[in-house]
């Protein structure tokens, strides 16, 4: 329980007071911070609306002349709200937060890279090394083609992630333990794939940027 520093109403932990709407800034999970249900499928527009509405209500500028306790509450609430918004608006970050929320870590028992993904990484990095050695139009075209391929793979992984999210939302915590474990493993696998592909995409971009600058 927590007491609102503005209207002194006692209530369950919350970002803002249920009575007067002033900031409390208690530590709540990131879904609760945005007043969203604990669901992985999030409508981006609803997320934006929730963020902007809450942000306006608790912004430190509004409490410049308030008491120290209220100003502190405003700062804490704003920091948490910002973290919630940045985490939940990015599906991969949202998925990683879901793991964290349930006591899982992305890296635990998860260091084998699937063969086809490893092949893509190594072949692409070899093309980039060739481009570094020789900036020929052919090598540039090969690197650009790889970027397209990696971007397509990232799109496909994004769809896989959305499907995993939908399965959690469909039956959530009511699932049997065995099925839960499989779904967490699947979530880790797709989040890992996205991480490797994102790093690869960034490396290609950097190399193409260097080639352009030269």
């Amino acid at each position: 329980m927590v007491t609102c520093p503005s209207c002194v109403r006692t209530q369950p932990l919350a970002l803002v007071c249920a009575g007067c709407g002033a900031p409390i800034g208690a530590s709540v999970d990131l879904f609760a911070a945005l007043n969203l249900p604990r669901r992985l499928t999030i409508d981006p527009e609803a997320l934006e609306r929730a963020y902007h509405n809450l942000s306006r209500r608790i912004h430190p500028d509004r409490f410049g002349s308030a008491s120290v306790r209220i100003r502190d509450a405003s700062l804490r609430a704003t920091a948490l709200l910002t973290r919630a918004y940045r985490t939940l608006r990015d599906p991969a970050a949202r998925g990683r937060y879901w793991l964290e929320l349930h006591g899982h870590k992305l890296g635990d028992d998860n260091q084998r890279v699937p063969a086809n993904l490893a092949a893509l990484v190594f072949e692409t990095q070899e093309r980039l090394a060739e481009l570094r050695d020789e900036r020929t139009p052919g090598n540039l075209a090969a690197a650009r083609a790889r970027r397209e391929e990696v971007a397509r793979a990232l799109d496909a992984a994004g769809l896989e992630l959305a499907e995993n999210f939908a399965r959690w939302d469909a039956d959530g915590v009511a699932t049997a333990d065995g099925e839960h474990a499989a779904r967490f493993a699947e979530l880790k696998a797709v989040l890992s794939k996205i991480a490797y592909l994102t790093t690869l995409h960034r490396d290609i971009d950097r190399e193409l940027e260097t080639a352009r600058a030269a």
Binding site: G107, Q111, A118, V121, S192, A195, Y196, T198
Partner: peptide, 13 residues
């Protein structure tokens, strides 16, 4: 052996 660190996207062969 091909392994990776999914937190940072590093890959090692």
């Amino acid at each position: 052996g091909i392994v990776g660190a999914p937190e940072c996207g590093d890959v090692m062969k």
